[in-house]
Design a protein around this nucleic acid. Sequence first.
DNA 1: GTCAGTGCAAACTTTTTGCAACTAC
DNA 2: GTAGTTGCAAAAAGTTTGCACTGAC
Lengths: 162, 162
Amino acid sequence: MEIQNVKDTVRQIFTEYLTTNGHRKTPERYAILETIYSIDGHFDIDALYSRMMEQRKFRVSRATLYNTIILLINARLVIKHQFGASSQYEKSYNRETHHHQICTQCGKVTEFQNGELQHAIEETKLNRFQLSHYSLYIYGLCSKCARANKRKKINNNNKKEK
Amino acid sequence: MEIQNVKDTVRQIFTEYLTTNGHRKTPERYAILETIYSIDGHFDIDALYSRMMEQRKFRVSRATLYNTIILLINARLVIKHQFGASSQYEKSYNRETHHHQICTQCGKVTEFQNGELQHAIEETKLNRFQLSHYSLYIYGLCSKCARANKRKKINNNNKKEK
DNA sequence: GTCAGTGCAAACTTTTTGCAACTAC
DNA sequence: GTAGTTGCAAAAAGTTTGCACTGAC
């Protein structure tokens, strides 16, 4: 699906959601949705705030961002993650299911896809639980940090020998 | 493995970790480890703090709890989760691998085990990444909230008809 | 016209940090 | 003795809340 097409669709979904739940259709809310769907990957409230100021020249308060994000999560248009200190968000409509690799040393987060894994999770029988979505976080060392540690270790050993 | 046996073993692992990394073996650190391994399931810093005061009559500052937990995570004796607002922790030695179901409405977290799922995740080929551990969070509605919503919906419909 | 929504600042919560006192080594 | 740890309080960071004003309906 093309980008503009996606934006139109999510706008429509959001409108329906707002109508159904008796919320007002404010320009702030649509501007936030529009901005979020122009961001690839994860973002936090601060990044979203900056981006709206810079790119869309539309200023909204952080409070409104927090408020609106909750609506978007309920409308199933955004999902929330809790990797590190602050909450991370990402658009969820028309996005491939993916999993997250998080480096325990440098904190870098990368995404990867795996059909088998996805299938295994979605087919899991859950007792008395209605699945809505899920997050798989895999922790470990990214190649960069693994290499850095290896070098460090060699250096330390050399020092000891001296 | 019996509880006391586990506690002795983790104590030993922690001692080795502290020695290897040039950290001191303070009574605070062992008291914290001991308390954590007497807690079943998840806890946050506040709960740990209260528990140490009440049960072990050993008072440590929150700062020390945060410091020590980092050591325990590095020693692979504790793992950290980020469900809601505050970080949640749990002991990890000699504990069955398990996954988490989180109710998006009431926030209740329950654990479940699934060998197939565990196997599928552990066998996943990761490109340039050294797996250390992982967390699978499944979001949705617990049976209680699902029932509550159903009732609510019926009530709303009745009201409309009147 | 009304009331949900917004912006702002203050409040609140969780976690981190700086510093003096303490203690494991 | 001395450097790593601790406790305390202050600070920082992220999020929520109260209130007056605004604008969607």
